[in-house]
Design a protein around this nucleic acid. Sequence first.
DNA 1: CTGCCACTTCAAGTTCACTTGAGGTCAAGC
DNA 2: GCTTGACCTCAAGTGAACTTGAAGTGGCAG
Lengths: 162, 162
Amino acid sequence: MKDLDIAEVARASGIAASALRFYEEQGLIAPIGRHGLRRLYDPGVLERLRLIQLGRAAGFSLREIAAMFAPDGRPRIDRRKLAAKADALDRTIRELGALRDGLRHAAACPARDHLECPSFRRLLRAAALGAIRPPAAPKSAKKFRRPASTKRRPSSTGGGRA
Amino acid sequence: MKDLDIAEVARASGIAASALRFYEEQGLIAPIGRHGLRRLYDPGVLERLRLIQLGRAAGFSLREIAAMFAPDGRPRIDRRKLAAKADALDRTIRELGALRDGLRHAAACPARDHLECPSFRRLLRAAALGAIRPPAAPKSAKKFRRPASTKRRPSSTGGGRA
DNA sequence: CTGCCACTTCAAGTTCACTTGAGGTCAAGC
DNA sequence: GCTTGACCTCAAGTGAACTTGAAGTGGCAG
């Protein structure tokens, strides 16, 4: 395939060009070359970006993601850490599952005060078992400059605590 | 039960006193009174804090959480929004599940370059289907005020994009 | 009554992940 | 050959969620 310029990558990945440059600065991606000043990207960068987005969604910091990617390109990953992360993710998933059930219950439960509902409290208690590591909060989302859609609403960030 | 002072709440919840004051400033919690200058909390605040932590883990911003709590105290929640959030959570959970599987696979797969492994690529593709909303990044996690340590290493935060 | 020190307020600082703005370059179209 | 404008760099700004520091207050042990 032909190489892509930054605008094409931005369009294809849904990631702003400024963010792509930032990722490069952080060592997460790299262009294969330049055409004049302009960066040229191998189409494979799109897969890498998907991996990055995924990692972010899972609560990894860019630094952590960079660490599991290796500076040179391919995902040289520490298998032990990977397994540990998978376990952590599993816990998070279970907690989020409990939260989801709690939300659904709250949406359906006729009780006026959810904290009075025994089943809601049970879910709450179950979900709160593991020390939760809050994800990071996106800022706002500017998009790159597409006309419609892309609603971008930050989510949250957190201060995790012991 | 007896009322708690801020240090007790911090200890019981695992949330720093400074964060509790911050939450109060943001309208997320409130003391039931004061003893002199000192805040006194109803033990019920602990449940509220669990809910807040859970919400943060699920990717809600403090603002969003405050919105679903109501300024007066009880969780007056918009059932429609709740259901929508549950659906969004469900998508996130599925994506994280795919990511977890991908991580586990990567930890076990003998292929040197995971991107060359068809099953890893398939997982990647599956996981990337939904536009992912990255969570927020906790700053560090200071704990409340333990003597040593507190190394402060942030984890991640994210900028989501369409 | 004295002193301690946990608690208080308030402003400023920090981290993360980007975005924005100013000023510059250059490939391509006219 | 000149203009255009997408792309460039670099510094500074932004927002979220807290933390930190300085200066003050007051309950309570002694």
